[in-house]
Design a binder for these strands. Sequence first.
DNA 1: TTATTCTTGATATTAAATATCAATATTGTA
DNA 2: TACAATATTGATATTTAATATCAAGAATAA
Lengths: 153, 153
Amino acid sequence: MTPVAKRKMERRKTFNDYIAKKQLKSTKQRDTIFNEFFNNYMGKHVTVEELYEDIKQNHPSIGFATVYRTLKLFKESGIASERNFGDGKARYEPIRSETEHHHHMICTECGQIVEFANMQIESCLNQVAKLNEFDVANHKLEIYGKCPRCSEG
Amino acid sequence: MTPVAKRKMERRKTFNDYIAKKQLKSTKQRDTIFNEFFNNYMGKHVTVEELYEDIKQNHPSIGFATVYRTLKLFKESGIASERNFGDGKARYEPIRSETEHHHHMICTECGQIVEFANMQIESCLNQVAKLNEFDVANHKLEIYGKCPRCSEG
DNA sequence: TTATTCTTGATATTAAATATCAATATTGTA
DNA sequence: TACAATATTGATATTTAATATCAAGAATAA
């Protein structure tokens, strides 16, 4: 099995567990949305609207509200994270691993997004939280600026 | 002069310079909003609505749209920063110093916000940006979790 | 199969952000 | 000071994303 496939399977299990724990039901729509999201949007940052438009191609009967609610469910269950890059639209991203946190550099000119991870930042963060006796659930770090191409001019 | 008053004066100069550079006009409304914002909201995170309601007390003729536009102007001119803590409302905060960046820990239970600054994180950030040849304009870091009081239960 | 409970899709509602526009204020210049 | 040019204001309308509503339909457990 490829690493990607394995990852997807792990997320599937997490999601199924969540469904079971919360006494929710598993449905065809949720399956479809899960597959679309994890097959095509790993490492991407998709809006509800975008995912809905995409899914509509092959599954015209799935409604916007279902996509919206399902992405929220993905987030609640811990298999997706919600991002907000300042354009007023929530974006969702499949979570790659339980432990690895990564962050984003966003070009304010062209919108390009570069991901990065940095162990040292993570450990500083946790130290700060510990000092304040804060029980960390998650965190986000965003750097706004100009990418190499846009800062040339 | 108190440090607070000095800070306010510096921001005023920055704002006036911006106004001049962009060929905008200085108005009584902008003065009023500037004073209210810098006198009463240093270290706070105020929404447009909140600031508008506050200002209305003593200046009932100032409209919501003006407060909204003026806060945007403060942000553009670099004397205020916009924050978004996930409740769907933009919040504005007077900038304390040109150089010091601080960040936020937000309690997801009670909404309490703890500010912190960390030199090491700043330097890591700049290093990462440098590696990617990113020209940093600003950045934000938010930690979500439970404050000591809320994590007791 | 049935009863229960959850989900779905269409649509309506809400709320924040932003656009519009006529009336008014500010600014530079004579 | 008066004038012309330009920006601002306040009220209101519009847009848009997020969310609520609800009847009909689907999943689940007994």
